[in-house]
Every structure is written in structure tokens, then in C-alpha cells.
Amino acid sequence: MSVPTAAASPTGRAAGRPGRTASRRREAIAGLLFVLPTIVIFVVFKFIPIGGAGAMSLTQYRLNGDVTFLGAENYTRLFADPHFWQSLGVTLGYVCIFVPLIIVVSLVGALLLNRLVRASGVFRALLFVPYLSSFVLAGIIWKWIFAADGPLNAALDGVGLGPVPFLTGEAWLVLASLAMVAAWKGFGYSMLIFLAGLKAQPAEVHEAARIDGAGNWKSFWHITLPLLKPVVFFVLVIETIVGFQVFDTIYVMTGGGPARASYSLIYFLFDQGFRFFDFGYAAAIGIVLFAIVLILSLIQRRFFEGKDEQ
């Protein structure tokens, strides 16, 4: 976006209208001042740490502050490390379960709320409550629920289906259990975004569809969902990033186990940094994760833009 200013105008028009130019300059400065806090926050808390992590990833950094420049050694070591590939596989598996799950749950929640005529505010608040709790708290509660002698297994036992080793069984079951907890905890946020998208849809389009005889299902597939596409893209990107960053629930519920079945990329990073004190290597993992998420987001964006053009 370009902002016309006197400096950017070589025609001399500005010189002919000094009052208007000064007013525009003041507006530009005021606008800049308004966004300045956000820019400062982004630079201080996002860009500088990313740059710092990038720099640290090229070094061996010790707790006492000693730094040795290693060049790309941390990266070559990382790509040859079987635990990196294993944790990447675990993370991808988790994302593949978590992202569709949370999108479906939030969309269903939003559709139901959108249909409510009375007390929608109360239900909206109730469904949003899990989002306000901490991942650690959610993890502790669900660890108890999933335990061999927990209430869920007691209920499953009652109907002859238990006990199920939710957090100690096969890798897919452990990841699915963790994804379920994260979806329960996080769906409120995406649900509100979907709800806002649904509320913004023009009522007359749905009305016309109803007059043309479209049922609920057809209306959803051919009108509601296509109109929601930008919102779905936004939620998809956000939740994919959340999925790749999974750590808290794993830390509390499984500790990366059993036998590294839930050893995600961030857990791998945490281990390298805070258990092995290999901060340069941990920073390299962080940078690679950043690159993966960035590339995935760009692919998703391109995919959705392509669909839009069609």
C-alpha cells in the first residue's frame, strides 16, 4: 500500500498545496504512531528472537555464556539424527489427527450455535470455557480420565470394552488421545471464528436456496461451506501451526513416551535444550520447525487461492 506524501510526489503538486500536504503528513505520522506499539512488540518479541535463534543455531552455546561458532554443523547433524526424523514423523502423525478433528469439532459447534435462537450467549460461553483453561490443567485432568483406573476406563469396563491403554498403548492411540485433549481444549477459539464467518454470510443466499428446495445438507455443502472458505483457510493455518507446536499436553501426560511414541519435534527441541544443554542444536531444531510451518502455510495458502480462482 502506498501513502502519497510530498517526498513521493515529483510533480510539484505538493508545493502548490502546502496545507493539504502537511495534513496528509500528519495523518501518516499519526497512523504510524498508532501501529508503532504493534510493530515494536513484533520486532522485540518475534523478529529479534527468530534472528537470535537463527544466530544461536550456528553456534555451540553453553550455560555459562561461552559461544563457539560451528557454521552449519548443527544442521548437518540434525538431518542425520534419527530422532529428528522420528519426532518429525510423530508430529506429522499428530497434526494429521489433530487438525481435522479440531476443525470438525469447531465447525459443528459453530453451526449448532448459529442455529440457536435463545441463550446462544450462554452456550457460547460454556463451550469457550475449556479454551480459557491451561494446557497443563487440561493435561492433568485428562491424564486422570484416561488412566487405567480412571473414570473413562471404568465406564468402558462397564460395557465390556475396557481397559483401553489410552496413554500407554500403541503410538496411534496415544497420539489420538493427546489430539483429543488438545482439540477439547482449543476448539472454542476456532469455533468463534467459524461462528463469526457464519454470521457474516448473507441471509438472502440461504433463503434463496431454501426457496429453490435445497435441504440442510445441500445448503451446507454448496453454500455455507464455500462461503466459509477463507475462514476455513485461516483456521487450518492456525491449527496446523498449533499442531506442530504441541508440547504442553505431551509434557504433562506422557513425557514423550511410551518409548518415544509421542516424542514430538518441540519435545525433541526441549530435550536437547533443557536436558542436554545443547542450546545451539535446539535452536537449529526451532529454525527447521519454523521453516516447515512457513512452507506448509504457503502451500495451504496457494491451494486455497487456486481453488478460489477456479
Binding site: P258, A259, R260, Y263, D271, R275
Partner: peptide
């Protein structure tokens, strides 16, 4: 010692799980 412990523990789990 602590790093080796962190590396060894999951393998002991794998053995106890029969993997």
C-alpha cells in the same frame, strides 16, 4: 550422566513393552 539417562530410559521402556 543425566543425558545418558534420558537417552537410555525410552529403550528400557521398549524392552519392557516387548518391542
Amino acid at each position: 550422566a543425566r543425558q545418558v539417562m534420558a537417552a537410555l530410559a525410552p529403550y528400557i521402556q521398549s524392552a519392557l513393552r516387548g518391542e
